[in-house]
């Protein structure tokens, strides 16, 4: 996993001040939105803790000593929520899931892998999907359980899979 390459805006001081001009602000927030998603995709991170956000590289560029204010961070996250790339984990909005791929996209990706490997009508465990040797090269390897669960539920609703549990471990059967 190489170093994440930040976009040019990251070194542009005004990027860290929310712009009052509506048009400019739109562009700025779009840039923030894609930065947050790219950053999480690159680092395969799925959750964001508000308390830690301000000190993370993502919102704090130490080289130019600019930091996005907490208020602005919330504005950016709200943007992400509007585009359904974010879901709050709790009501107090302290932690959130960053979905750089939507559950539907994940579901599609998983189902494709299943058909490509001829695993239709077989059962595999959730653990196998997340951490198994077979999925090592797949994007969904190491996918957050919460997100995986959402994706599988979507497949169930499409009648492409069925979740089963036995002996305390969860499994899934693809059709």
């Amino acid at each position: 996993m190489g170093n994440f390459e930040f976009p040019w805006q990251y070194n542009f001081p005004p990027f860290f001040t929310l712009q009052p001009n509506a048009d400019t602000r739109r562009k700025q927030l779009d840039a923030w939105r894609s930065l947050v998603l790219d950053y999480h995709r690159h680092n395969k991170q799925y959750t964001l803790d508000i308390a830690e956000a301000q000190s993370s590289d993502l919102f704090f560029n130490k080289s130019i000593n600019r930091k996005l204010s907490l208020e602005s961070i919330n504005t950016v996250l709200e943007e992400l929520r509007k585009t359904e790339n974010l879901e709050w984990k709790d009501k107090s909005k302290k932690q959130c899931m960053i979905m750089w791929r939507s559950p539907a996209e994940w579901a599609k990706l998983i189902y494709q892998w299943v058909t490509n490997n001829g695993m239709n009508n077989t059962v595999c465990t959730i653990y196998e999907l997340q951490n198994g040797d077979d999925t090592k090269d797949e994007d969904f390897h190491g996918l957050d359980s919460w997100l995986l669960d959402k994706a599988l539920k979507l497949l169930v609703s499409q009648h492409k899979a069925e979740t089963i549990s036995y002996d305390g471990s969860d499994g899934v059967k693809f059709f």
Partner: peptide, 10 residues
């Protein structure tokens, strides 16, 4: 700034 020519760093 209002014309969109400049942006601020506060």
């Amino acid at each position: 700034e209002r014309k969109g020519e400049l942006c601020r760093d506060d």
